[in-house]
Write a protein that binds this DNA or RNA. Sequence first.
RNA 1: GCUGCUGUAGCUCAGUGGUAGAGCGCACCCUUGGUAAGGGUGAGGCCGGGAGUUCAAUCCUCCCCAGCAGCACCA
Length: 673
Amino acid sequence: MTELLKISLPDGSVREMEPGSTPGDVAAAIGPGLAKAAIAARVDGELRDINRPFEGDAELALVTSRDEEDALELARHDFAHVLAEAVQSLYPGTQITFGPATDDGFYYDVKAPADREPFSMDDLPDIEEEMRRIIKADKPLRREVWSRQQLIDKWEAEGEIFKAEWAKELPENEELTVYWSGEDWLDMCRGPHLASTGKLDPQAFKLTRVAGAYWRGDQNNPQLTRIYGTGWLNKKQLNAHLTRLEEAAKRDHRKLGREMDLFHLQEEAHGSVFWHPKGYRIWRELEAYMRRKMDKAGYREIKTPQLMDVRQWEQSGHWGKYAENMFAVPDMVPEVEELGDGPANPSVAPDADWMAIKPMNCPAHVLVFKQGITSYRDLPIRLGEMGCCHRNEPHGALHGLMRVRQFTQDDAHIFCTENQVVEEVKAFIELADQVYRDFGFTYDVKLALRPEKRFGSDEDWDTAEQELRDAVAVSDMQGEGDGKLEELPGEGAFYAPKLEWHLTDAIGRTWQVGTIQGDRVLPDRLDASYVGEDGEKHRPVMLHRAIFGSYERFIGILIEHFAGRLPVWLAPVQAVVATIVSDADDYAKEAVARLEAAGIRVESDLRNEKINYKVREHSHAKVPHLLVVGNREAEEGTVAIRTLGEKEQRVMSLDEAIATLKAEATPPDLREG
RNA sequence: GCUGCUGUAGCUCAGUGGUAGAGCGCACCCUUGGUAAGGGUGAGGCCGGGAGUUCAAUCCUCCCCAGCAGCACCA
């Protein structure tokens, strides 16, 4: 007599099941409805196939499509497998590698057969069709445990060199599984999967693009073709997602930047921004705001050179570790050969001295710190700079305002003693939190730990990393996202670990803005010191920090975050006074003069156009307030305010309107209460 | 930098082996109209740059540049 398995269910009940039975059997025992709805199971908390037998007593929670997160993960993973199967079925000789679920779908990295070009967008319709065929065939997805050698033999026999390479590195003692799709195709996979391909909705996915991706993420390896898709549980979800993407595209800062006449980019200065009056207005407001914040927080602002002798960069270590991203300039008058009307051909003498344009401000700040003799009593010293830096970024990395070659940081370096580090980092974390909340952002904080290539001793790295963790633990952060501190091994700077603040753009990509880094390397390399209580020289710790990160990136994120509808205090034009008839022109001019006198950024629109047209145009321009005046308003001394995003107008006296606008135009740090 | 795609008027985009078109915007005229497109007329383009094939190239081929998506990179 075999002993029955005790399967506990979420409602607290316990079912006794025959050994070898599966979560599917439990579902069937409970009722036919559930048997049909159950797509997978959580067994002792682990997501598993519905048909994978229990290995003993267990806690079971059946997963249905109502458990959206699990269901989506499973479906996307299955879509990825179906994608791989479809590609191999259509194009024999294609090698498959990996294909995980993503935030909105799935991808699979494949290597096209040698006699074929890499896959392109044109191939996607055929592949989609083949995927639908596989889904409709309702092929069972069956789990099987294989030995490592079995896997290696199979992949090698089939010429799957990537899979074989991977299989060889799998641990010997772990249970290795494959999943069959029907009887004719399989992939090595940890699972879990749905019971069959037919559980997928053939109308709930769409292949979206192809792109190159390196095998195992290393650019020294062959490049594969990554086929991306978006995958959902049903067509409705898919369509909703596609609509969301369209909406997100509308708030792309590059598009809005042009439409709102904020800035432009052009090839002759690619990667550098031409700021237009309206865009630079936003910049100036941000800069004024940040200056007030930093002044109050005990920073002192400085300005340091754009160009320094290359020898200085050698000493700081940048020339060795960072030269490929630096712009170098010969310190000489170039010989210019005139070729008639053709291009001038400057040539550089072989013995020219070289200068480099600063890619960061830190070495210059150390040089400022080193002037004179500093006592421990003076510490901490916080030196701030709106520092314009140039970095020669890989061209494929450039992206609107988000990743540029010339940018200005709200940079500062805090020189302090060992004992002051945690306290200073804490103060910074709270300052950053205030700033992000003033803009309505939530954020994620990550801790980037020591990279492979680095300066400094392991003991110093241990200390520096722990200080950042300690500071986070004692800090008061309110505007944060999920509240967990994610640690990123190997991602720190060559001189210091970094705390990083990440914000999200319109389509969900995250961008680092703020950072603070605890550096013991640069003060040492550049021989910075202070005189301690004991009269001896000591090395200060140097904290590198920024909150906006760069004005360029921060403005890009602001534009996307607000879809161009910036808060009044940041809006380049805060109000437009628009007339209905020309008889109201004089009154409109008076209103504009009074608004200007109150410090409001206001423009007038006296054109001979219908009010409908003016409303439409200024709404498109995302002007927060439109003050409409006609004969009625002129007589009564009122304005009809139409606020962006609202359908209703409010009529109020001009005085009242000025007071309202003035309050809204006040930057958040200057508001009372 | 790598893979793929794209580059035509200020913007969004059609189009053709015989040097070009629309809508919006812009200018001018008419219209003074109460909250998201009033009407008319007109100007505007070395079809990203270079080389090649061709009687002829915006169109085909090659190289370069830039942009887009992803990868890699982001001190």
